[in-house]
């Protein structure tokens, strides 16, 4: 089962895509993904209900978040009430160590994204300040990466034995499905996604 783990809708300040448009685009372009996760910037969208769209388009639509830490941006999967109370999702100066620990404690998982990107990726911060304990999975393919950035992410994953996922980081409709993650098992819910991410039973894929 292939899921695009990193996407933004109009709920994000810089997102320009309606979720319904993503769904129609995936079908029209025959993009080989079975689901997508909406990871809105600095927030968790607990209002939108995409169940009708899921049924209409036979797609799994899940919700996570992308938060901002001292080691760069981080995807958070498995957001629940406990996790929402653990830190301020809107802050831009969270501590990566705190986010990783809180996610783990509350039954979720934190996945640093676009690690190879300047400032907002963890590679440069690791070089300066060393690794953070508890990180197990990072994004190694990102649809918005510039030349050399994914290579730096892959090198970090190899060096530290991290599992690697892929996500498009789509902000426009036509950017979805550039990168994704292929899971060995079927995934039907956020709980199952978090479990699969913790097991490491997946591989990152890129069609860029």
């Amino acid at each position: 089962m292939i899921i695009d783990l990193h996407n933004h809708s109009t709920k994000s300040d810089d997102g320009r895509a309606k979720v319904s448009s993503y769904c129609r685009w995936i079908h029209k372009r025959e993009i080989p993904i079975h689901g997508l996760v909406l990871t809105e910037h600095r927030q968790f969208d607990d209002e939108s209900d995409y169940r009708e769209l899921e049924d209409e388009h036979d797609l799994l639509i899940l919700k996570g978040s992308e938060v901002e830490t001292d080691y760069g941006h981080v995807l958070v999967f498995g957001v629940n009430e406990d996790l929402l109370n653990a830190f301020d999702f809107g802050a831009i100066d969270l501590k990566l160590a705190d986010v990783v620990q809180a996610a783990d404690r509350c039954g979720g998982i934190a996945v640093p994204c676009h690690p190879g990107r300047p400032t907002v990726g963890m590679v440069a911060h690791y070089e300066e300040r060393g690794p953070i304990e508890g990180v197990r999975v990072i994004e190694v393919y990102n649809g918005g990466s510039r030349a050399g950035e994914d290579e730096a992410s892959l090198a970090l994953a190899r060096e530290l034995g991290y599992y690697g996922v892929g996500g498009s980081d789509a902000h426009l409709v036509s950017q979805i499905g550039l990168c994704a993650t292929k899971f060995e098992r079927d995934i039907r819910s956020m709980e199952e996604l978090v479990m699969a991410l913790k097991e490491g039973s997946f591989e990152a894929v890129s069609w860029r």
């Binding site: 300040d13 910037h41 600095r42 901002e68 941006h73 831009i92 990107r117 300047p118 400032t119 907002v120």
Partner: peptide, 15 residues
């Protein structure tokens, strides 16, 4: 119309 903070490739920013 709006004010918000975020970090990008060039560092922290106020929009």
């Amino acid at each position: 119309a709006d004010i918000y903070e975020k970090t990008g490739r060039s560092g922290p920013m106020i929009f």
